[in-house]
Nucleic acid binder design. Sequence first.
DNA 1: TAGATTGTTAATCGATTAACAATC
DNA 2: TAGATTGTTAATCGATTAACAATC
Lengths: 215, 215
Amino acid sequence: MKKELSTPSLSRLCAIYELLVDFEKKGIKRVSSTELGKTLAFGSHNIRKDISYLGEIGSYGAGYDVGKLRRHIGNALCLTKKRPACVVGLGRLGSAMLAYKGFEEKGYSIIAGFDSDINLLDIIKTTVPVYPAHEITEIVRIKKIELGIIAVPASAAKDAAHKLILGGIRGIVNFSPEVIPCDDKSVHVANIDIIKEFTMLSALLSIDEQKNMAL
Amino acid sequence: MKKELSTPSLSRLCAIYELLVDFEKKGIKRVSSTELGKTLAFGSHNIRKDISYLGEIGSYGAGYDVGKLRRHIGNALCLTKKRPACVVGLGRLGSAMLAYKGFEEKGYSIIAGFDSDINLLDIIKTTVPVYPAHEITEIVRIKKIELGIIAVPASAAKDAAHKLILGGIRGIVNFSPEVIPCDDKSVHVANIDIIKEFTMLSALLSIDEQKNMAL
DNA sequence: TAGATTGTTAATCGATTAACAATC
DNA sequence: TAGATTGTTAATCGATTAACAATC
């Protein structure tokens, strides 16, 4: 990569990549920046600029070759690498994650689950090996797990993150509202907070309502 | 509101609001922009600027009164308004949402669940009323439901969104990877895509690896 | 060649950061 | 008053948009 990619660019490239995977399955051969933009709700300028960060690839006048572009983005961002992952917290949300087939389809493998409740580990129905929470650090290290999903209550989130990081985890998807302190720059955190999304939507609705009142 | 709030500002204000709710519960009386910034990992400049969008409220030299500021943000964004919500798709993820206690705690009420599988509706254990998917539009309209969670497979997402919008829904949290076409500007959509988060994290890890190789 | 679409440069726009005057 | 922290203005930074030259 020549230049540092910005976060929004990277995010769009990932979206483009996923779309190209689908297009390839459907047998679509060529696609233009305008078409990609329409499907993903980005401007065509944006699409071309993001793609050209990775070097020239398209054909002037004929758009992009779907397979070629997919491999191009995939190689540049190593998206074809299979990254082992785990789930911490096997309540309703966590066990939904354990059972979700989308991971395997997209090249991720969930190879461990953890919970602090030993009884739960006995009765849970899953093909994924499960372990007590105190073994997180050890298992992550032994199995070289790179990605972790935190699906525990807020009060336990920081401890879970700490154990994962000690084991050498490199990426965390955090479903709890807690901010994960991440002084270690080599660990990346993505936060998913359903309540915060609800709050944002509520605020947007309120702003709409105030606008309509003013009319 | 004097000026249009930017999306990042709005997002930070929501985060500040949630934090202030917690502080109030803990009995903390005053807080400075520096303290807020440290906890939420924003700059103190940012905090002050966001807050001052809503008008002056702090005390020079003494920080902010926790309760006063919380009410101030809450009123400006109508965050105290209880917004009725529903869940479409009662698989593992959807039923986890139905059962999640966080909504009620934060002032949202899930008052309906929907699924296209009639048998599932019979056997599901929940205190929330559940209905077949073809009744979505009608129930949303009758119960004046404002927010909807889409937790169906990708192939069914657009249809679910369409039915919700027909019923007059105003905000959607979309757990599917499908882009919800939303020409109607009065409907807001928040996308939560766990696979996309994994892809983003993978890409970030790959970039790190490339950097380390270069050293 | 003519038509089409890319890749890139330049212009606009907006958000963040820095700095400091205002004020309790 | 002295110390502290807000609110706001100005400066920087970066991303998006627009426009067009390059090229198949």
